[in-house]
Design a binder for these strands. Structure first.
Lengths: 194, 194
DNA sequence: CCTACCGATCGGTAGG
DNA sequence: CCTACCGATCGGTAGG
């Protein structure tokens, strides 16, 4: 994350928008709110961005790409399913912790994307979830995990992961890597339940 | 949940609003959208309800009361911390499953409450969470759970619980009680991690 | 980045 | 529950 001074004006607009979208929701944030927070007139925003939704699109799809790349690295390794799951969880949390604001918007505001962006977004998300699901199914098959309902397991996993931007305080005592390790430990232990 | 025919017109308005709030968000749902879904004019809504926000207030505070009552029953029992936590989780899920739509609104749209309602709501929520936290801390103290970070544990718990209305299909194979048992099993097992 | 402005839509009221 | 309507605000454009 570059400092505010080094960001292009467009980046500054998008980052400030992300804050407002996270705090008040996309629909409840007006372009006048955004302009006001930046100290300019609403009309001036349009020299930097094409539309309100373009901002949401940038935020959602840039995060999606980071998550995808993180999981891909894990899948290509020759390790146990337990380790794949652990690294997958750690990777997801590391990506989120690098931009908690954009992560919260990615999670909670993507439904305001219009078509065909919404459709593309949901397809990417279901693909990402299914790849985690396959790791869990592999783990069950090989006896690493108990015979738990996979849908429940993967939904519990994603609930825990995705809610994090709403409560995690990076300035607090626990750092992102430790958080990832602890969360992975808890969830993996839970998956061993018979 | 009474059938649509038996609901008062006011109840019908609130329930339809809950659906729209869940699907599109509170801010992105207009009173004209709601009127349209009910087959009446927007102005006619105001013979049944005082304002748009009054609907949100009903939904949020009625659910809050159900959650509070459910937890209170568990706290008064003379059982282990593990069992208290298990019953607390089951209770929470049972309350949600009786009205998944209102639960989703409770979870995702409460931030659109105005003051002083928002403040009251957040105080109730932090109180509810703290009571679960105390059960977990009791369990750690008595050696029932491992020495996990309690904030992480309780946030993971609530993430899993509260995201459920966004994916659980009650017409599917798993019923709410079994879901509660499985989820409680996973999470409790996770808490035993050293 | 600003002034000036657009048509559309918002939550809600008056009066029946 | 409807018609008629209100002032405020919305996302966005023209032209500089």
């Amino acid at each position: 994350m570059p400092s505010v001074e080094k960001m292009s004006r467009k980046e500054q607009v998008i980052r400030k928008a992300a804050e407002l979208f996270r705090d008040h929701g996309y629909a409840a944030t007006s372009m006048r709110d955004l302009a006001n927070a930046l100290g300019i007139e609403a009309a001036s925003l349009y020299s930097h961005i094409k539309s309100k939704e373009e901002i949401l699109q940038s935020l959602c799809f840039e995060m999606a790409e980071l998550f995808r790349a993180s999981l891909e690295k894990v899948e290509n390794q020759d390790i146990s399913y337990t380790e794949k799951l652990r690294l997958g969880i750690r990777g997801h949390i590391e990506v989120m912790s690098k931009d908690l604001i954009a992560s919260a918007v990615f999670m909670n505001e993507h439904r305001h994307l219009s078509q065909p962006y919404l459709r593309d977004f949901l397809l990417m998300r279901i693909n990402y979830i299914n790849r985690f699901k396959k790791i869990i199914e592999g783990g069950i098959k090989h006896g690493e995990f108990g015979g738990i309902d996979t849908k429940l397991a993967v939904m519990t996993l994603f609930s825990s992961l995705n809610w994090m931007p709403n409560w995690y305080d990076p300035s607090g005592i626990i750092n992102p890597t430790d958080l990832g390790d602890q969360l992975a430990g808890m969830l993996i232990e839970g998956l061993k339940t018979k």
